[in-house]
């Protein structure tokens, strides 16, 4: 039963998502597919950070009547870790910006060579 806790399950999910994302980045030849793999890797890392801050049986870090007058009578025993959530919040928005930037580069590359296969871009290869 210990292996079916939410914290452990989400940890395994995030590890597998990161590995799938790396696999896609390394094995795909199409630039758009590489960017899709990058977004999956991004999601995996965010899930990993949030799942490290999760504590079993606690609620969201918002202080209201249900937290301060709950059965524990103490904020410290009622909420999950707020710091990873604050970090991931900005990381998601940055991830969107990076994805948009990568797509703009991909569009520029496509205009230059009319192809998206990564093997065709060998100008600097020697």
């Amino acid at each position: 039963m210990e292996y079916l806790q939410l914290g452990r399950i989400s940890l395994i999910i995030s590890f597998l998502l990161i590995i799938i994302g790396f696999w896609g980045i390394l094995s795909q030849k199409n630039i758009i597919k590489i960017i899709v793999s990058f977004t999956i890797l991004d999601t995996g890392i965010n899930v990993l950070i949030v799942s490290l801050g999760y504590l079993k049986g606690r609620t969201a870090p918002i202080i209201d009547a249900s937290v301060s007058q709950g059965p524990n009578h103490n904020v410290l025993n009622a909420i999950v870790d707020p710091v990873p959530q604050a970090l991931v919040l900005t990381a998601i928005v940055i991830g969107f910006g990076v994805t948009a930037l990568l797509l703009a580069y991909a569009m520029k590359l496509f205009k230059a060579k009319r192809t998206l296969e990564i093997n065709q871009f060998n100008d600097l290869k020697w």
């Binding site: 998502l17 899709v36 999601t43 965010n46 949030v50 609620t59 959530q85």
Partner: peptide, 28 residues
């Protein structure tokens, strides 16, 4: 990839992170 993001946002909600879930659902 969009569906991966959507289900990840449900996962955030289960892990008591509603702020992150909202951002991921709207942006990701």
């Amino acid at each position: 990839a969009g569906v991966v993001s959507l289900f990840a946002s449900v996962l955030y909600l289960l892990m008591a992170a509603p702020d992150v879930a909202m951002t991921e659902a709207a942006i990701g």
